[in-house]
Design a protein around this nucleic acid. Structure first.
Lengths: 254, 254
DNA sequence: CCCAATTTGTTCGTATGTATC
DNA sequence: AGATACATACGAACAAATTGG
């Protein structure tokens, strides 16, 4: 029997047996058109079907589980089940990719600058009063200036949470995911590089004002206004964040 | 010993032991600041360090491998190594997320419409003659109208490959990844739904013309022109693709 | 070309944990 | 509470791949 291979972009890669089995199971699931919650064959059945040992089957299951495709439960009625990946898990898997590629504020804001105005333009007039008040509830958490550095950090994260919330409200799953991911990445970067540290009163005040005007435009269903306000919000946030970054670097150097 | 838990957004999740071990290894790698290519402890060392059986350690390794974080090699000098995930792998992992969330042409083009013009605007004047001719080489593969449905499909994919190539040339890794992913998703969708089937001469002719003008603008370093051409390209592509979609649905219904 | 050393890869038997009825 | 059905975990042995002599 020739070694199983898969044609990738350039060279042939030899797959280990658990990987082969995981691939085979994945294809089988797609062929069967199984949906989230559907049960896969039990371990003994898999062992028989693939002619592999328990250990190998288990490793294959771990692979699928790590990719967020299945979940396992013990006990009677338990087994391995097709699973719909959560957005959180998808974001976590993708951040692994960017772990070694260090993103800059410029990279992040180049995306935000064009995507977020588009998002709110399509959101205007479609949000329920409940959704709008959830946005306002987040804004309320940074209604007053922070007293401590700790609080400063929390407010910074909360103001990004505002954008993550907007992203979740999109009826475009692609748009929603991308913006939520970018927002989270920015949040992680801010915390990691302590970009909240020299408290930036201007960033706080202007951001708050823009967000208030934005919610107003969303409630009024004024799409053009929402887009414009978000554009201004992003532009000022970018320049203030980059100034902040320069300040942190300056303080680090001296 | 209490079961190990992790606080997530809502409820506590019980982690299996291999998952715990995988998490522990991941954290250890980050703490040590290991880079791509660095070697992790061998299986026997892991067994001792975590006090777990070989099978459990191996399952943990499979989890990290499935997430694209490590690779393993057999033989002397072999072992488990920190690995920098390839863009292809990252895209594959992310497509799993969108497998159950069916994206529409509208969703995809809403993103392309704003991101791709921004991409080419920042690319104008930065590309080498070599890169420009690689773009032209792709364009050459669909210089003549397709004769068969097979060829039609190949040309459709190649014209999306043109955009994937542009994405790879971005010096913004986030922008590059997102556009490459969206492009590939559109390519998969086109093939899966056979959107190339009733040959669309207008889509082919106009797309080709726009791409030629685009390369010209990129070579001239005319950023504004590149942005405008891409905007027009995206707008016409969207409307023609959606007409195509309607046609395919119509033919399917009758 | 083969052989030996090293390291991961695979198997099988057994025992344990866990959830359902 | 006890039986059942399922995944989970362990340990020892063996197999395969890779490197260097």
């Amino acid at each position: 029997m020739p070694p199983a291979t898969i044609r990738s972009t350039a060279k042939t890669v030899r797959l280990s047996r658990p990987e082969q089995v995981a691939e085979a199971i994945k294809e089988w699931v797609m062929e069967q058109g199984l949906h989230s919650g559907d049960r896969l064959p039990s371990e003994p059945e898999m062992i028989e079907r693939f002619g592999m040992s328990k250990g190998t089957i288990r490793e294959a299951t771990r692979i699928l589980e790590a990719q967020g495709l299945v979940r396992t439960r013990t006990g009677p009625g338990g087994g391995t089940f097709v699973h719909q990946m959560s957005p959180e898990r998808a974001r976590a898997l993708l951040s692994n990719y960017f772990y070694f590629r260090d993103l800059t504020l410029k990279d992040i804001y180049q995306i935000r600058m064009v995507l977020e105005p588009e998002l709110v333009a399509s959101l205007a007039g479609t949000l329920s009063e409940d959704e709008l008040s959830r946005l306002e509830a987040v804004m309320a958490t940074y209604a007053h200036p922070a007293a401590t550095a700790e609080e400063e950090r929390e407010q910074h994260i909360a103001s990004l949470r505002f954008h993550g919330l907007l992203a979740e409200m999109s009826d475009n799953p692609l748009m929603g995911f991308i913006i939520a991911f970018v927002t989270q990445t920015l949040s992680d970067l801010t915390v990691y590089r302590k970009l909240y540290d020299p408290p930036n009163h201007e960033l706080w005040a202007r951001g708050k004002a823009y967000q208030a005007r934005l919610v107003e435009a969303l409630r009024a269903g004024d799409s053009a206004q929402a887009r414009d306000v978000m554009s201004l919000h992003m532009a000022t946030a970018q320049s203030l964040m980059q100034a902040q970054e320069a300040e942190v670097i300056r303080r680090f150097m001296t």
